[in-house]
Structure formats: C-alpha cells, structure tokens
Design a binder for these strands. Sequence first.
DNA 1: CTACACCTTCCCATTATGGGAAGGTCAAGC
DNA 2: GCTTGACCTTCCCATAATGGGAAGGTGTAG
Lengths: 131, 131
Amino acid sequence: MHIGQVADAAGVSAKRIRYYEQIGLIDAARRSDAGYRVYEERDLHTVHFIRRARQLGFSIPQIATLLALWRDRQRCSADVKKVALAHIEELRRKIAELQSMVDTLDDLATRCDGGSRPDCPILAELQGVGS
Amino acid sequence: MHIGQVADAAGVSAKRIRYYEQIGLIDAARRSDAGYRVYEERDLHTVHFIRRARQLGFSIPQIATLLALWRDRQRCSADVKKVALAHIEELRRKIAELQSMVDTLDDLATRCDGGSRPDCPILAELQGVGS
DNA sequence: CTACACCTTCCCATTATGGGAAGGTCAAGC
DNA sequence: GCTTGACCTTCCCATAATGGGAAGGTGTAG
C-alpha cells in the first residue's frame, strides 16, 4: 500500500502520516525503488489506532505510550488505565475552566440589554468596574 | 511608566505587552531617549482589559473588536453582546466535545479492571475491536 | 566605578496539523 | 513512444499566544 491508500483507509491525511513518522510515533516505512513509502496491513492498524486515540483527545506523547502498551503482550491493564485516568482528569480540568468562562459570560450577556444604547455590563466587567 | 511596571500592575508579562504591540492589538508605545517604551495610565487600563478578556477565553481578534467597541462611545451594546454570545457558543461547543471524550473514556476506564492482566477494553476500543 | 535591575531586539520552541511549490513516478490512453 | 493526470517526494511557511534565552544597552545606588 502507498501512503494515500493508508490515509484513506485510516481516515487521516497523508501529511499526518508523514508527520507521525517524522516525530517517531510510527516507524519509518519501507521504501519502493522510486522512494515511495510502502505499508503493510499492520501499519494501517497502527495509524487507525492513532486516529482513534486522537479523537479521544490523547496527546501524541500519550499515544506513544499507549502504542507501546498495545504492542506489549506483557502489559498490565493498570498501566493503560493510569494513562486514561490522567487524561480524563486533564479533560475535566479543561472543561471546568471553560465552564467557568461560560458561567461568567452568560451572566454578563444576560445583563446586557443588547439594544442600541452604549451601556454594557460586559465591557464594564472587562474594564474592571465590576458592573 | 516603563514596561515592567505596566506588566506588574496589569498582571501580565512584559513579553506579552511587546507581543500585543507587535501584532497591533495595542498602539506602539512612545519611546524614551534610551529607546524604552513609556506608558500612561490609560495604556495600563488597556492592558488590564486585554488580560481580563483573555481570562474569559476571548481570542486576540475578538479582543481587538471588543477594544474598538470599548473605545467607541457611540457603540451599541448589541454589538458587544453579539461577540460575547458567539464566544459562548464556541465555548459550549468545545465543552461538549471534551465532555463526549470524557464520557467515552470514563466508560472504558470503568470497564478496565486495572490489574496486572493485559486484557484492556481501552486498548480494544482504540484497536477498533469495540470490546 | 561597579553591581544589579531593567530595558532592547532577535531568534527559537511549543502542538498538531494544513497549504503549497518544485519536481519525480506510474498507469492509461492515443 | 508520448502525453496526461493522479500520485508520490522533500522543503519551507503558517497557524495562536505565548515563554525562554542570548547579546547588548541603560539607569541608579552604593
């Protein structure tokens, strides 16, 4: 398989696959005489794995860890779970941060009449007047 | 005031202030004979405004808009509200995205026993087996 | 006069991509 | 055989909003 086929099959761009190779997330592919990257079924699985992990928000370093665990038949599920739980914590932290912004903004927007007058609690808050 | 004093007073780094100047978010400061940036009280207010807007998650382009509205005595509060509502929408979208990741991960993690055995629904999911 | 704190500009790094240029390859059709 | 079009290659640039650090000038206090 050439890179485009892997890309289509795994649902990622060819650029991404090259990038993953470049940073060492996946092994450098074998090359054809013309210099084209040549992939096996196995590589497709790997790229697909990476794609799904990205969809769950894992960072590239985390995915490197997960890939290593995936390949290690001797792994403990505890190690995998640890990575997942840490990620969940991080996601929850971010959600809380964003939610707190929404709460503040929602309150300000509610108190902003949205008419043609210039008075605005949103700008007042940003200005530091505290409305 | 020199840049360090503005930075301390506004709670941002001097680097950021220079960056904001560089990208045109704030006007280029007057310079002293030695080439030091010189600021007035007014500039401090602006930097403070930017900091608070950043804390609410507004992007630099959005802040440019908000700053322009802030300075415009003829503004309509509707224009400000529009920016805020669009931002709230965006935040909610991101929260939903992150929450959906958490939901999936949480389910997988719950089903992962976390012991020393290799079997792991998390890896199974990433592999595409769907456990 | 010497520290020391502060300022300046400039360049590099971050994260995970996408865009696009310049040029080589391959298969199909004429 | 030759052209065309789809594919591949590498290389460089751009993103957003900073932080780090180097090399060098400034200002003041002792």
